[in-house]
Design a protein around this nucleic acid. Structure first.
Lengths: 341, 341
DNA sequence: TAGGCGAGCAAAAACGTTTTTGTCAATGAG
DNA sequence: CTCATTGACAAAAACGTTTTTGCTCGCCTA
């Protein structure tokens, strides 16, 4: 009964206090001041439950994090930076981020989870991460008429708001670099094909090869789960093949570090005999042996973009179809890549 | 007006429907069945705002994540696994986790943030991570009479619920191992001293030295920020000193990887000429060169423990002082440590 | 047969806001 | 002088639940 106490204290009606607090025009500047001052003194905070019930607004943005590869991590390190950026912006708009984990990956349960999140009235807006090539979630959320932004694109004809890093460009650049080093047999250690960013990376890779008239070799395009273990295993299989590649482009720094370990195991010197490029510019990448040439993309800034977009969408300042932001990438050269022998 | 619709549809009163839905005893088994069935058919979901307003319960557990060392990451990788475990358990109890980031680290802002979280009625319970040696937060939250669990202990006379990994034991074991390898000058690359786990690690380290009657050397106990960069810098400073250590124990795998890089730079072979042990058993630790001997602690399980404890605390099944759980650790030997030359 | 009791349901208040619709006095126009 | 207008505030309804209290009926007991 907090606002009534405040009202009583001030000798005003509840409605006037409420309108003063919310900055309406039909309350005198004088009263407004007085109310604001007293509210601060008394430490008044509007009850979120009541506000929510009345106005239907939750002041919450939801995100459902897919379980990481090991089924254990709440967020992978990318989502980690991303959410940091989102949170920072949301905070300015009076919104908070509510994160839930998708513990299982089957699609029915996923739909139910989103359904519950939306229909249950838990959030005002949604953030979708790890978009798939065809992603049932965006249709689902679109139909619910709730604002949302995806991190990563997806193949749908309908307009929707997305923020993404330029995955294609990144792998185009990385592959081109390898080609310019004289490499012709360049492997791609990629992630699960269902994800859109994986397709885009493949596309960038292929486009670079095509540009230099190098016939793509399906046997050099491998898919794993983005982890060190997977990078290690995949690289190992490449090294024992009939004609091993002289260069590798990896979907994550973790994979690259796994790949480096595989090379070391077979006595192949990375950055001399084989050329490896990673992706992500993780903190570990600078300290591997050799230090990893990788691609930096500003995940945190992406998060900020998403946060801002979410806010503008919620406020109705902009249409979903007008929010498209592609974050540029930059290659950071270190020692793991080298000219062909 | 959802429950009234359901009530009307069933020809029952609102109260009966509500009581049926909530499993009260004074509604016949028959009616209960009928209500439950129809509710499912109709897709009825109680409005969380209304429920919250009336009952004062939010179905939300809050956690305020400290910004990581780089000021950018939403959660460090440890918190990441931890929250996964928490979430999994909470889900069973009908609770969700709401995560907010502490973007700045000054203490006034911190207090305000917690104050707002609690007094604002955003959550039913709180999870405190990264406990400090003396941590104003636990006093703050205790006074607010809201259930909470800390991950990591703190120095306070009052009883409170904590879950922790056995940091002291871990560093006792790691250090002892180095001693048994014949090392006498063993460095400790630790984190910021304000954190309780940092003190405990120091304590474990010191205890092992004391046990073998080795005089501790303050110059060998260094503090950084747990990152690769910091591990690199600290190790570098050790190596150029008058009498460099023959062994190093690191507070994180990341630091250890940085330390390895520093050794490599100076042509010192890790696992032959110098013995290094990490902590955390991160996915990268198995793929460094040499593979890192490290300490595994089940962070995810800790998270599950926390989740369960939170639920029991909320339900009032247990007193805060009765929740103390110390997760054991296990050393996983790899190649980065070695006998003294 | 009267009174008490329990089982099963209903009425109504309450939670703390926001918002719609008044009310009332002072002001200005005609 | 009258009447409409406006500026500043108040009353009251509404949001969708939960919970306390009340009611009715049939049954058992004395």
């Amino acid at each position: 009964m907090s606002i009534v106490l405040l009202a009583r204290d001030l000798g005003l009606s509840i409605s006037t206090v409420s309108r003063a607090l919310n900055g309406y025009e039909d309350v005198s500047a004088d009263t407004k001041q007085r109310v604001l001052k007293r509210a601060r003194e008394i430490g008044y905070r509007p009850n979120p439950g009541a506000r929510r019930l009345k106005s239907g607004k939750t002041s919450l943005v939801g995100v459902i994090l897919p379980a990481a590869a090991d089924g254990v991590k709440f967020v992978d390190s990318v989502a980690s930076s991303l959410l940091g950026g989102v949170e920072v912006e949301l905070e300015n708009g009076g919104y908070a981020l509510i994160a839930t984990m998708q513990t299982r990956n089957d699609h029915e349960r996923e739909a139910a989870l989103y359904e519950n999140f939306i229909k249950g009235g838990w959030v005002d807006a949604l953030l979708l991460v790890r978009t798939r090539v065809t992603d049932a979630r965006v249709e689902l959320v679109r139909k619910a008429h709730i604002p949302f932004v995806t991190y990563g694109r997806t193949e749908t004809p309908e307009p929707y708001a997305w923020v993404d890093t330029d995955n294609e460009k990144a792998f185009y650049l990385a592959t081109l670099r390898q080609i310019e080093f004289g490499h012709r047999r360049i492997a791609l250690l990629n992630g699960p094909l269902e994800y859109n960013f994986v397709r885009l990376r493949e596309k960038g890779y292929s486009r670079a090869l095509a540009r230099q008239r190098i016939a793509p070799d399906r046997l050099l395009m491998l898919n794993g789960d983005l982890s060190e273990v997977s990078g290690y295993a995949l690289c190992r299989s490449l090294l024992v093949s009939a004609i091993p590649p002289s260069a590798i482009v990896c979907a994550t720094d973790a994979m690259a570090i796994g790949a480096i370990a595989a090379c070391r195991e077979r006595g192949i010197e990375v950055g001399k005999e084989i050329s490896i490029v990673g992706y992500g510019n993780s903190s570990a990448s600078a300290f591997s042996d050799p230090p990893l040439t990788t691609i930096d993309h500003a995940v945190f800034d992406n998060g900020r973009h998403i946060g801002q977009s979410l806010l503008r969408l919620i406020r109705g300042e902009v249409k979903p179809g007008d929010i498209h932001y592609l974050e540029p990438v930059v290659l950071v050269p270190r020692k793991s890549d080298c000219p062909r022998r």
